[in-house]
Design a protein around this nucleic acid. Structure first.
Lengths: 153, 153
DNA sequence: TTGATATCATTTGCATACGAATGAATTTGG
DNA sequence: CCAAATTCATTCGTATGCAAATGATATCAA
């Protein structure tokens, strides 16, 4: 079959050309790049805290004292990951840990006064980060994008 | 100022309530979750290769032999990261390395026969991964989403 | 009540991801 | 032509992110 015939066949059958896989058009690849860009913008605004660390602080501000595991669930981190994040926040005095009186398995996490001050101070910057990340889109596009992105997450 | 007055003021001035920062509505947080979900879908279909490793193989299939650094640029990885990825692919015999004859700084990377076989075999699975990642969206939503996501990446 | 299950946390091992520092080789500008 | 700047690659340190194994505690069910 000639190249032209093959092209014709593909158009007619609407089959993907199996020789034509474009990495840079795959959702996973672009998702990874968009995430990288966001992290970079975050770092430019908040240099001394990572997005996961800020997420932990912001969520603790919302819900108050919780167990480490529960916090992990709320910010989409598995137990091993959240432990590292909390360890580093504790080392910096932004959170404090205590044992649950009734259920001795649980490790309670809470903001320190310093941690609470830090979150309040950083939230305006976090708003700017969100804005800058979405800056390539118009207001209408942002609404559409956020709706669809939420469906994928 | 009473709570009602404060609300009124906010509505009039269209200022965000600085006490009301919702982490789970921020684009960075949802982007991170969407990426996590994609990686999880990837792992369910292709267990013995990570998305970055597959990206390297797929891109080498596109462009043929390139320098390690150039490959990194093409798949959005910095020099330190791409080195680790290539090292592991080399250890598994999927890529081979050679020195550039003219520019002695460059380390050339290419697929081995086994690496080429692996990519060809995996591309259909990669198509499924893309499909499953986008499954929560309709065809029209996918087109919209990809267009907007590309703008952000 | 007790044996099976489930939950919470920790640890280990592996794989991105990136900043910063370093060294080798190349290119550029004066 | 040569010194300065750039590029390519490596290494180190730190921080996610997750699977799997382990130990302690709690809950459930026969």
């Amino acid at each position: 079959m000639s190249g032209e015939d093959k092209l014709l066949k593909l158009v007619e059958a609407e089959e993907p050309d199996e020789n034509d896989y474009r990495l840079q058009e795959q959702v996973g690849f672009i998702l990874r790049k968009a995430h990288q860009r966001h992290v970079s913008i975050f770092a430019a605004h908040i240099g001394d805290l990572t997005p996961p660390q800020f997420a932990a602080l912001a969520k603790l501000r919302d819900v108050g004292e919780t167990s480490q595991n529960q916090l992990g669930t709320l910010i989409a981190m598995d137990a091993a990951t959240v432990k590292g994040v909390i360890d580093r926040l504790k080392a910096r005095g932004l959170v404090e840990l205590s044992k649950h009186e009734v259920d001795k398995r649980r490790l309670l996490v809470n903001l320190t006064a310093e941690g609470r001050d830090a979150v309040e101070r950083l939230i305006p910057l976090a708003r700017e980060i969100t804005q800058e990340t979405l800056a390539p889109l118009s207001a209408k596009e942002i609404a559409t994008f956020m709706k669809l992105l939420a469906k994928l997450a």
